[in-house]
Design a protein around this nucleic acid. Structure first.
Lengths: 198, 198
DNA sequence: CTCGAAACTTGATACAGATCAAGAAATCAC
DNA sequence: GTGATTTCTTGATCTGTATCAAGTTTCGAG
């Protein structure tokens, strides 16, 4: 696993933001001072169902899981790793109670900003408003691919695509969570894994 | 069906945009002059697979279908009606070849703007950049609900939710398309419809 | 380190929804 | 309007994946 904590979380965030937009030094200062460090321990609940998400997260180290529960069963929406943004984003933007929750799969740390601060930043600096739009577009493109796969691919195809895209993921995310993410049971996942490794 | 063509498409678009942001009259003029009328006839292909989507559409009248094809089978991603925006949006924003296509389910007309013009508008007017961000957020929230339903709901639940949300939809969208949108076969859709109406 | 809990594997069985088929109804192009 | 084409319905059968069950391995808290 790449070790990003040689640089500070702030520098890491800067690198990620500058991939999309180019704020001036002053703009950057105004931006970065509003992001505060956070830390959660393994299995800790970060945002619960029904809460209104007040933070937008940047993951420096660790893994966050987004999920919802239906009839007692977990459904994973996705995972956030080093260098990803995270949060119960639809609640964050709509200011409505969260219909999914978020917890820490490992110890996780990074930076986060409140909704108020981010909105103020958007109002006062066009460059960040633009970044917000571009970020949303990136998420939309990813979700679109996910939807196509869920609609059209068999369980086996979804499994194979995941293995091709991120073969290492199986090392640090429990299989039951990956199974849920792919829309299959842990048993089915296990059987496919066996078949795959032969 | 509500008859929106009493007002001009331009006024209709204005109403929709002003729900989210409040441009000045000058800003509005700069905006609206870049939107050009379009018209497609029933069953006409609007954007094909592999093309780079060059337009962002506003539907004044009619219905547009977004879909992709896998192993010869159609999968509908969604429909755009009066007052909706449309287009192969992930291709439009990413400038990569479209992985889904769009056609007209009925005669359809409205306004559209080119990618270049919209990007220039975003650059020159913060208010529209903001609108772009808010629009993306709205789409994200909707996609999130769709994903949750596909992952966790049975075919019957998805059917019932659609009937509750838009009971009239069955009047003007062929059942095979609705079936595909819900991720089931037309046969299954037909059986559920029968059960539902009893 | 260790032991108890959680995660994973593997086999047997069940079932929702797909597929196949063929007739009935609706709709569109002319 | 009307015939051809497409869509819809209904029944019979099939199948991928879920469910249930029971043993095995892994992991992490203390």
């Amino acid at each position: 696993m790449t070790n990003h904590n040689i640089a500070s979380p702030q520098d890491f965030l800067k690198e990620i933001i500058f991939r999309k937009v180019s704020p001036t030094e002053d703009e950057w200062s105004a931006f970065i001072e509003l992001w505060k460090p956070f830390k959660f321990s393994r299995n800790e609940l970060i945002t619960d169902f029904g809460a209104i998400e007040n933070y937008f997260y940047f993951v420096n180290e660790g893994v966050i899981r987004g999920y919802f529960i239906k009839d007692g069963e977990d459904f994973n929406m996705g995972f956030s790793y080093q260098g990803d943004f995270s949060g119960v984003y639809n609640s964050f933007v709509s200011r409505k109670p969260a219909d999914y929750a978020m917890d820490a799969l490992t110890e996780v740390n990074g930076l986060r900003i409140t909704h108020t601060d981010l909105m103020n930043l958007f109002e006062s600096h066009k460059v960040f408003e633009k970044w917000g739009r571009l970020f949303n577009e990136m998420i939309l493109v990813g979700l679109g691919i996910f939807v196509q796969s869920i609609l059209a691919d068999s369980a086996e195809e979804r499994f194979r695509k995941l293995m091709k895209r991120s073969p290492h993921i199986i090392q640090f995310i429990p299989q039951k969570h990956l199974a849920s993410y792919l829309g299959m049971t842990p048993e089915t996942f296990s059987r496919m894994r066996k078949k795959w490794m032969e």
